[in-house]
């Protein structure tokens, strides 16, 4: 069964003889990417997603799809033994999962934790994650006809990827700008301070909530 790589036809090594398996996982742990480079790349991603879209929803969905695989990969990376030197743990409940997203994931992506985490008062399967000033929206100004758009849909896609691959299936994860009137998802103060304040609405599937209740009764 075992194959010697030197005998394998068709496999091409990079010129420096280093495959991805020879690289250190922690190499980029504390490395930061230049914000300008990210903004430039992100603008290109948006204009790529904007091709042939019908409406704002379609565009947000495409941004979401771009972020989704990232979430699945980041979950594996950020919980790896190389990263967490203590016991290797995986979240089995909704709250630890959301804390992982708000703390570990946010720190990894944006170098700071998310601003707040709430459970929706109206629907038990909905959770709200707030970011006062999302990095992705920093250099984006929306034209009038796209005023409904929130490009943090990309980040929502990442969150959805994390939740789904962790075994917490979601109906949808969407990003909304918190409106001045504070309508929709509850009254939020200080919008003048944070004009770009964004809420990520995480809707879990009913079976996930059901499992949560069963686990809670089991007293885990």
């Amino acid at each position: 069964m075992s194959t010697n790589p030197s005998q394998t036809p068709g496999l091409r090594y990079p010129t420096n003889k280093k495959t991805i398996y020879d690289r250190n996982l922690n190499r980029s742990k504390n490395a930061e990417l230049s914000r300008a480079a990210f903004a430039y790349l992100f603008i290109e991603m948006i204009s790529y997603a904007q091709k042939k879209v019908r409406d704002v929803n379609d565009l947000e969905k495409r941004l979401n799809t771009q972020g989704y695989p990232l979430g699945a990969k980041l979950l594996t990376l950020l919980t790896s033994p190389a990263r967490c030197h203590t016991a290797c743990l995986g979240p089995t409940r909704i709250l630890p999962l959301l804390q992982f997203i708000a703390q570990t994931l946010w720190r990894h992506l944006f170098a700071r934790p998310a601003d707040s985490l709430e459970r929706s008062t109206t629907s038990p399967s909905d959770y709200l994650l707030y970011d006062n000033d999302p990095l992705v929206n920093q250099y984006i100004s929306l034209p009038r006809e796209l005023s409904q758009l929130n490009c943090a849909a990309f980040v929502a896609g990442i969150i959805e990827g994390v939740c789904d691959s962790a075994g917490f299936a979601t109906e949808s994860v969407s990003a909304h700008t918190v409106s001045e009137q504070g309508g929709g998802e509850g009254v939020v103060k200080g919008n003048e301070l944070w004009p770009g304040k964004t809420v990520f609405l995480i809707k879990f599937k009913p079976e996930v909530v059901e499992r949560e209740e069963i686990l809670a009764r089991g007293g885990g």
């Binding site: 290797c88 743990l89 995986g90 089995t92 630890p96």
Partner: peptide, 11 residues
């Protein structure tokens, strides 16, 4: 299973 500790299970 019920052995999970505070919502995180060992891998």
């Amino acid at each position: 299973g019920p052995s999970t500790t505070s919502g995180n299970a060992p891998m």
